[in-house]
């Protein structure tokens, strides 16, 4: 962990009206770390991700990504977003474009890269997410799991320095969850830096290098996943883990 942090959050506060969603979050992520954020629903995990790439503005504290200050309304936000890949719970693929076009759009349009080079890279990415045969299908023709893997390829196409997964498997049929988790596992092995909001505790324990437990807008615990699962330090975390193990 001697590398300089890629992402730093210092005392971040996010409010919607009078409701405080994030209540003083401080977190530092080093390159190649895989940080899994867990906790009860409605505790601000997704909001945290959305603040990192400026989909939401913040009311207090500071977020820095690769030395750039993240400000939702500043011009500099575009450069930040170009280096962060985000995968959404609902996939959010563009329905009027084929799988391949979905993956190629941002590199060509936003990054201004050459179409030929991008297409080559995109085809390799479909190989990686094991979807080469479905390359010309439209989102409506794909299953949820397939759509999510296209979304992962789309995020990777921009060569991001950080990947953020916002409950990437929550909207999937149980039988397709495995395919998506397998792809995420491959990415972890490659040494990608990942920020993963998830309810898949087993995945977090196997793949994560760090686990962050959040509750009511605060980080309650931050430790090695196995350690936290075996010996939660707080009562709240203990309750949460026992409740989801059912």
């Amino acid at each position: 962990m001697s590398d300089a942090p890629i992402l730093e959050l210092a005392d971040v506060v996010k409010r919607f009206g009078s409701r405080t969603i994030l209540d003083g979050i401080s977190l530092s992520v080093a390159p190649r770390e895989i940080v899994c954020i867990v906790g009860p629903s409605g505790t601000g995990k997704s909001t945290l991700l959305r603040c990192v790439n400026g989909l939401e503005d913040i009311q207090g504290g500071e977020i820095r990504f690769e030395q750039t200050r993240v400000e939702a309304r500043a011009k500099s936000i575009k450069a930040v977003r170009m280096r962060i890949g985000m995968i959404f719970q609902q996939f959010n693929l563009y329905p009027h474009l084929t799988a391949l076009q979905n993956v190629m759009l941002a590199p060509v349009v936003v990054h201004g890269e050459d179409r030929k080079i991008v297409e080559e890279r995109a085809r390799a990415l479909f190989e990686k997410v094991r979807l080469s045969p479905r390359i010309n299908a439209y989102p409506a023709q794909l299953s949820g799991g397939e759509q999510q893997r296209v979304a992962i390829a789309r995020a990777l196409a921009a060569n991001p320095h950080l990947l953020m997964f916002d409950e990437a498997t929550s909207a999937l049929d149980p039988e397709t969850v495995g395919d998506v988790l397998a792809v995420m596992r491959d990415l972890a092995v490659e040494g990608r830096t990942m920020l993963v909001v998830t309810h898949e505790i087993r995945f977090a324990a196997d793949v994560g290098t760090r686990m962050v437990f959040m509750d009511q807008g605060k980080i309650v615990e931050d430790a090695n996943p196995r350690e936290m699962l075996a010996h939660p330090k707080t009562e709240r975390a203990r309750q949460f883990f026992s409740s989801i193990r059912g």
Binding site: N53, L55, K78, A79, R81, M82, I84, M86, F88, Q90, F91, N92, L93, Y94, L105, A106, V109, V110, R154, A158
Partner: peptide, 19 residues
């Protein structure tokens, strides 16, 4: 989600509208 995905990919308002 379409607006969000496009924003997250760094598109400007013009690019988002057009594409």
């Amino acid at each position: 989600g379409q607006f969000e995905a496009a924003t997250a990919q760094g598109m400007t308002m013009g690019q988002m509208f057009r594409h």
